[in-house]
């Protein structure tokens, strides 16, 4: 079959250029879009029924490479698409196909993606649907990494998150680390505003994981902190004791509602 044949050659070429050091992002992208068209023509992009096992394996491989490629090309929406296409292979054909060694890295990447986009509810839904027991999750480095990150974020152990950025189980995980760090800094900053009255510049830099002073000053400026350079401290504008206002409108309408209901009862 000529279309299958051309798919094969493209596929081997993709693997070659993907595994090459350094990997050629542009070339991979071009190959991937050709391959996807090929897969659609062969009816393998979203397989139905009982196609050939080898074809399925190849299709899965291509999509997995696509997912990794999207991360390397810093294209998160594309990763999202590849991941949803891969779901079919992982769940519906999971019992037929031999397990892929890239499956858990990709699932883990998806979890981190949800975490960085602050989609915690989906994060937990996805986690629940993983075909792993609780112990297996703890043992699987690809999955336990995002799970731990989420736990630390929720507790507030930000330093652990910071330290874990070097322990990423796969190269692609580091892509998300930067955006995660941005989230953490904002979290710490908002905590700091509530918890401190003033903070020495040096300590603020360590708390916020800033390597140098200028970065810190820029960040402080963004958040509107008052920096006192002579004494070397940052003071946070206290929002003051918010004046408690009596919600007149609400109280009146509530009282009226009670009166109306009581009227009905009597």
């Amino acid at each position: 079959m000529p279309p299958q044949q051309s798919l094969r050659t493209l596929y081997t070429e993709l693997i070659r250029s993907f595994t090459a050091q350094p990997c050629d992002i542009n070339k991979c992208g071009a190959l991937l879009s050709q391959l996807k068209i090929g897969l659609i023509e062969a009816g393998l992009l979203l397989p139905q029924g009982e196609p050939n096992l080898n074809d399925l394996l190849v299709a899965r491989d291509i999509l997995e490479i696509g997912a990794f490629w999207s991360i390397r090309a810093r294209d998160v929406p594309s990763f999202d698409r590849y991941f949803s296409q891969l779901q079919t292979f992982y769940t519906d054909y999971g019992s037929v196909l031999p397990p892929s060694k890239r499956e858990y890295p990709i699932r883990g990447l998806n979890l981190i993606r949800l975490l960085t986009q602050n989609r915690i509810a989906e994060f937990h839904t996805t986690l629940e649907s993983l075909p792993l027991s609780a112990d297996a999750i703890a043992e699987n480095p690809f999955i336990s990494h995002p799970v731990n990150l989420e736990r630390w974020l929720m507790e507030g152990s930000y330093s652990k998150v910071w330290n874990a950025r070097e322990e990423a189980p796969a190269e692609e995980y580091k892509f998300f680390v930067d955006s995660l760090m941005g989230t953490i800094r904002n979290e710490i900053a908002s905590c700091g505003e509530a918890a401190y009255e003033s903070l020495p510049l040096k300590d603020a830099a360590t708390l916020l994981f800033f390597p140098n002073r200028s970065d810190l000053l820029r960040f402080a400026d963004e958040r509107g902190w008052q920096v006192n350079l002579t004494s070397g401290t940052i003071s946070f504008t206290k929002k003051g004791e918010e004046k408690v206002e009596i919600p007149k409108q609400k109280l009146i309408s509530a009282s009226l509602a009670y009166a109306r209901e009581l009227e009905q009862i009597v």
Binding site: S157, S159, C191, G192, A194, A195
Partner: peptide, 9 residues
């Protein structure tokens, strides 16, 4: 420190 800060916030 972080945890207490978060609790305050």
């Amino acid at each position: 420190e972080y945890i207490v800060g978060k609790a305050i916030r």
